[in-house]
C-alpha cells in the first residue's frame, strides 16, 4: 500500500559494505515507508542477502560507507539484538539449527525481549503458551514443533514456517525476508505467503528478497527493485518482476556496463 504521507520506517543511503576484504554493497539507496511491500530481485551474488544481513547486524559484514536510518535512529549503531527488539526482523534464508535449545523457550525469551523493549509486561509460561498457540495458526504449524530443539531436524518448509511464526510473535515494524520462498513446495509457499500477508499492516513494511515471481504472485509488492553488483539498478512496480521473468537478467549486464563506464551518477532508487 503506497501512501506518500506515510512515515518513513527505513532509509538506506549510499550503503557500502564488505565481507572480509571483498566489497559487496556499493552504494545502495532505498526508502521504505509504512504500509509498503518491497521486493528485491537480482542474480546470485548481486548483494541481496548481504543487504539483509547488514540491516540485521551480522558481525561478519562491515559497513564501509553510507547510512541506514530506522525511524529516525542510526540503525548501524545498534547491536543486532537491539535492532530486533526495536522491530527489525530478518527471516533467514537458512534458519540455523540449534540442538538442545527448546523452540518454545527460545520463542518465549525472544518474544519477551521484544515486549520489554516496547514497555509491555513479560509473558509467563502459561500466557505465552496461549499466545503461541494462537499464532501457530498463522502458519498452520503443528504444536509438536514447539517441543523440539530450534529448527533441529525440521524440513526446509518447517524451518520457514518457524521463521514466520517468530515474525508473528515479534510483530516487527520492518520484516526483511531473505529468500523465504527458497526450498518451499507450492503448498508451503502458499502458507508462508499467507502468513506474511496476514502480518502486513498499514503500520509495518516488508522487504522481500527473492529470485522468483511465484512468491510475488502470492504477495503483491508495491515496488520491485533489481539489484546488481551491490547496488539497486532499477526500480519499478510489480510489472518489473514480470518483465524480469520474461527477459531474464541479460539486460542488467548491458545497463551495468554502461553505468560503470560512465562511472558517475548512480541512479538512486528513490521510490517516494
Amino acid at each position: 500500500m503506497i501512501r506518500p504521507d506515510a512515515p518513513v520506517l527505513l532509509e538506506i543511503r549510499d550503503l557500502h559494505a564488505r565481507v572480509e576484504a571483498k566489497a559487496i554493497l556499493k552504494g545502495v539507496n532505498l526508502t521504505i515507508r509504512a504500509g509498503e511491500i518491497h521486493a528485491v530481485m537480482g542474480r546470485n551474488g548481486s548483494g541481496k542477502s548481504t543487504l539483509s544481513k547488514v540491516l540485521a547486524g551480522h558481525p561478519s559484514y562491515t559497513v564501509t560507507g553510507g547510512s541506514v536510518t530506522y525511524r529516525g535512529e542510526n540503525l548501524l549503531e545498534l547491536d543486532p539484538e537491539i535492532r530486533a527488539r526495536a522491530g527489525v526482523f530478518l527471516g533467514f534464508q537458512y534458519p540455523v539449527e540449534i540442538p538442545g535449545v527448546s523452540n518454545l523457550e527460545f520463542l518465549r525469551v525472544s518474544t519477551n525481549a521484544r515486549r520489554v523493549h516496547r514497555g509491555e509486561a513479560e509473558l509467563d509460561t502459561f500466557e505465552f503458551e496461549d499466545l503461541v498457540r494462537e499464532r501457530l495458526q498463522v502458519v498452520q504449524m503443528d504444536p509438536a514443533f514447539l517441543e523440539r530443539s530450534v529448527n533441529e531436524g525440521f524440513s526446509g518448509g518447517e524451518k520457514k514456517r518457524n521463521e514466520i511464526l517468530q515474525m508473528a510473535l515479534l510483530e516487527p515494524l520492518v520484516a526483511i525476508l531473505d529468500e523465504t520462498d527458497s526450498g518451499l513446495d507450492i503448498d508451503a509457499l502458499r502458507i508462508v505467503a499467507g502468513g506474511v500477508n496476514h502480518l502486513a499492516t498499514p503500520d509495518t513494511a516488508t522487504l522481500l528478497i527473492t529470485h522468483y515471481q511465484r512468491l510475488l504472485d502470492a504477495i503483491t509488492p508495491d515496488y520491485v527493485h533489481v539489484m546488481a553488483a551491490g547496488r539497486i539498478l532499477r526500480t519499478g512496480g510489480k510489472e518489473l518482476a514480470l518483465e524480469l521473468e520474461q527477459r531474464g537478467y541479460d539486460w542488467v549486464d548491458a545497463e551495468l556496463a554502461a553505468l560503470e563506464g560512465a562511472d558517475a551518477d548512480r541512479q538512486p532508487a528513490e521510490v517516494a
Binding site: 558481525p59 543486532p80 539484538e81 540455523v96 527460545f106
Partner: peptide
C-alpha cells in the same frame, strides 16, 4: 557465530 547471530537477531543479548 551463525548460531549466536541467529539468537541475537531474535532479541537475545
Amino acid at each position: 557465530t551463525d548460531e549466536l547471530f541467529y539468537l541475537q537477531s531474535r532479541g537475545l543479548a
